[in-house]
Write a protein that binds this DNA or RNA. Structure first.
Lengths: 346, 346
DNA sequence: GGGACGGCAGACATCGATGTCATACTGCTG
DNA sequence: CAGCAGTATGACATCGATGTCTGCCGTCCC
């Protein structure tokens, strides 16, 4: 349309203020309600009237005010909130991507927020989202406790927990098979003949980490192995600390012959530490990652996109009226051997 | 609080319906307006009254209806929309993360949507966001043309383009120094003595790719090199095609001695193709990526988080009333030598 | 003692849409 | 031609909050 001049003076709509349906109606010479009917394709609008209204709307650049509509229609938006850690962590972004795709199927829109792994911030984000009247809230909780969340669930806004279970089984959850995954990793290394196996884990107070650690330990016990005990390192929370930790482990005497890292960050750190090492220990990492195939890193893989998808599915079922008891979906894991985990002990 | 029984019968609020301020006011025995004042910490509320209102709100589990508030306060939300490609691409998730952090400083909330690299879907997402009355829209456009977007900019909702410039200079934009980056890569390889340099590029119709290709070509011309010409491959759009393309290049006679890939996806493909190769060509990739240091891949790096941050900053300035002409921020690039780009020709 | 003023509270309009109900008009039927 | 069904339209209330305006009371001061 009118390409020559910027839209500036084209219409006398007050600057920066969007036209309302009332203005459209006035321009078309019909009542507010008729304009509404016309634009919503409701029945009983004369064809000529409809055309006039649409033209007027076009001319004014009218855009429906979704906020007003939502208020009238029941004060509930088409938004679904996700509260998680930083999206630069591929685990979270994969989850978000899975959620987003599934929600779109149902005409819902994802709103994301980063809790910075801080429980207090998380709580205020939950509050902000509830004020916005999101239809559901998906949370990868940061802290240990989140009772405060469950209460809301009973008040009408469905909650879905990802990766970490709710304190009481009062909300839907999608979890990774941490126990199975860690056991598989442990057994994989044991089967390769390793005994002195180092475990590098993140904050032990987080449920998934706890589960991976415990399951690893249980597998060692079951195999009658005690030689791993000097090599347990937990509460390693970032890439740099992981790198340092692995370096330190490799200077012990006797040296561990294998390392199991319990999430993608720690695996990255371990890879840095092992880089250029002439005689690296075996390595298995929890979480698959991009280019693991190129580097040749053996991992305990799981489908994080599917995780997001399942969470969105559960939420959508609740939104659609499902009232049954809380459900838990478990995402399975697989060990993918790529070389690093198959190096023999020495 | 009351831990024993689920919240079910605690209050007689109709199931699933959240209490309104009117109900709070009734329970506290004050008028609607007084309740509003009390909960908003407005002056001129007797202390006892305030306490009664807050208690009532607590008891009912009252939560402000943000939709209604937004309608009343000016029909504009605290949301900022981002439309980009799939968040599993680390470039997009880094950008999103930068945006999110910056917005939070200003009390704004990010809403993301994936355009699936499809122009039509993108347009309808823009529409949906505008209906939701977002305060600003940040877009990594998918298609070639996006005139339709600029129009809106003049109507009050600020647009910021990321990575790809608007057709006409009518909106703010944050771009990468594609020309400088590609030239630096080209010169780096030329300086290493390479002449038969392959270029593997994504869809040439996209502006950033176009710029990288052209700049590479210009650098070759400037160096009086023509030997690269048989090795130009464009419109390689996914990882697998990139892998195949590089494999094919390596079977040519004479073989190229170096490869320049123009984005992270293509670099991934190239790395797959080169994996296990006994005598790999030199490789430089546009976009830094996780573990590039471990693999030893030389890249043209840029700060994508900063890119998001800048975009959010520009948007926020517009939201705050800045009315000046469209601005463009350019994100600089650096070549980071890590080995792969320093392999000599042979 | 009267007026000014500040603190507190409520009535009412309002934001921009949609739902309900009433009304005017048309054309058809018996 | 009365009666009635069906279409097209509009007036008005409504969603849940906030802004404006008004009124009441007590206190302070001259």
């Amino acid at each position: 349309m009118s390409a020559s001049r910027p839209a500036e003076g084209s219409f006398d709509a007050a600057a920066g203020r969007r036209p309302t349906l009332t203005q459209v109606a006035a321009l078309a010479g019909v009542s507010l309600k008729t304009a509404s009917r016309a634009l919503n394709d409701e029945p009983n609008v004369a064809e000529a009237t409809g055309r006039r209204v649409r033209e007027a709307a076009d001319r004014l650049g009218y855009r429906l005010n979704g906020i007003a509509r939502e208020l009238r229609r029941g004060a509930t938006s088409a938004l679904v909130g996700l509260i998680s850690g930083d999206l630069t962590n591929p685990f979270y972004s994969a989850v978000a991507s899975g959620i987003e795709r599934e929600l779109r199927q149902h005409g819902l829109q994802l709103v994301t927020a980063n809790n910075d792994e801080d429980a207090e911030l998380e709580q205020s984000l939950v509050d902000a989202f509830l004020q916005r009247r999101v239809r559901a809230l998906l949370v990868v909780p940061s802290g240990e406790h989140h009772d405060y969340l469950a209460i809301e669930g009973n008040r009408g806004v469905p909650f879905v927990f990802l990766d970490r279970p709710p304190d009481e089984a009062t909300a839907d959850a999608v979890l990774i098979d941490n126990v199975g995954g860690a056991r598989a990793a442990a057994e994989h290394l044991l089967a390769g003949g390793h005994r002195r196996i180092a475990l590098v884990a993140d904050l032990a107070r987080m449920a998934p980490q706890r589960a991976r650690i415990d399951s690893f330990v249980a597998a060692m016990k079951a195999a009658g192995n005690e030689e791993w005990e000097p090599y347990l390192r937990t509460d390693v929370h970032d890439v740099r600390r992981a790198e340092e930790t692995v370096r330190e482990l490799l200077e012990l005497e006797p040296r561990p012959t294998a390392v199991f890292t319990t999430n993608n960050r720690l695996t990255t750190g371990a890879l840095r530490a092992l880089r250029g090492h002439t005689d690296p220990p075996a390595l298995v990492g929890f979480d698959d990652f991009d280019l693991a195939d190129v580097i040749g890193t053996t991992v305990v893989a799981h489908d994080s996109v599917a995780m997001g998808r399942e969470a969105a599915r559960l939420a959508h079922e609740r939104i659609s009226g499902f009232r049954g008891p809380a459900r838990t979906v478990t995402i399975s894991t697989t060990v993918i051997p790529r070389g690093s985990g198959e190096r023999p002990p020495r």
